[in-house]
Amino acid sequence: MIPAPIPSNEDDRLAALRELLILNTPPEQRFDRIVAFAAQEFDVPQALISLVDADRLWFKAKVGLDIEESTRSDSFCAHAILVDEPTVVLDARMDPRFADNPNVITGANIRFYAGAPLTLPSGQNVGTLCVFDQQPHEVDDVALAVLSVLRDLVVEELLRKKALA
């Protein structure tokens, strides 16, 4: 397994994440509806709004998972926040970054992942909107455009909530 490197702006990224005042808050219908729509559009059983904290991923909204968080060290989302465009893994068993990842070879058995970074206006990627499945998938440009639009809705909602806090 190739762990994701820590972004060079990690301190600023974590500060921006904490300023959102969203970590460890209860589920909210607006976020839940976005992940449900993403799962439906990609025809996958699992979707998340994942916020990448220092050592963990915390899930603001989720479909198809019973856990609230997971470790950052073996996450796909920690890789996805390193770039500004969606990260797509068509078959994780064939990708050297993930082929021996515990989430691929045991437990979750993830094969497909698509995640768009949640980029704040300051340029900080604080998390992802992602979809995944236990089966490989193909993804076209239309699906990636949908994922990007939904990601933008998540960021808008995060900023709206911050302004109201």
Rank of each mutant, 00 (worst) to 15 (best):
M1I: 06
M1G: 11
P3E: 07
P5N: 01
I6W: 02
I6N: 07
S8W: 04
D11E: 14
R13N: 04
R13L: 14
A15F: 02
E19L: 08
L20Y: 04
N24A: 07
T25Y: 08
E28R: 06
F31Q: 00
F31P: 01
D32H: 03
R33S: 09
R33P: 06
R33Q: 15
I34S: 02
A38G: 01
A38K: 03
A38C: 08
Q40L: 07
E41I: 06
D43Y: 01
D43R: 00
A47G: 09
L48Q: 00
S50T: 05
S50H: 05
S50E: 00
L51D: 02
D53I: 03
A54H: 07
D55S: 05
L57S: 04
F59S: 11
F59Y: 11
K60P: 01
K62C: 11
K62D: 11
I67S: 05
E69W: 05
S70G: 08
T71A: 09
R72N: 04
D74I: 08
S75Y: 06
F76E: 08
H79R: 05
I81Y: 08
I81Q: 05
I81C: 10
V83I: 12
V83D: 12
D84S: 08
D84N: 14
E85D: 14
E85P: 11
V89L: 12
A92C: 07
R93L: 10
R93G: 13
R93K: 10
M94F: 12
M94G: 12
M94V: 09
M94W: 09
D95I: 12
P96I: 15
F98L: 05
D100M: 07
N103W: 10
T106Q: 10
A108G: 02
N109T: 15
I110Y: 03
I110T: 07
F112N: 03
Y113N: 02
A116M: 03
P117G: 11
P117V: 11
L118P: 03
L120D: 02
P121V: 05
S122H: 07
S122G: 15
G123W: 02
V131S: 11
V131N: 02
Q134W: 08
P136N: 14
P136A: 13
H137G: 03
D141G: 09
V142Q: 14
V142W: 14
V142T: 14
L147G: 05
L147A: 06
V149Y: 14
V149Q: 12
L150Q: 15
R151E: 13
D152A: 15
L153K: 05
L153N: 09
L153G: 02
V154I: 11
V154D: 04
V155I: 02
E157G: 09
L158H: 04
R160F: 11
K161S: 14
K162Y: 01
K162C: 01
A163L: 12
A163Q: 15
L164A: 13
L164R: 10
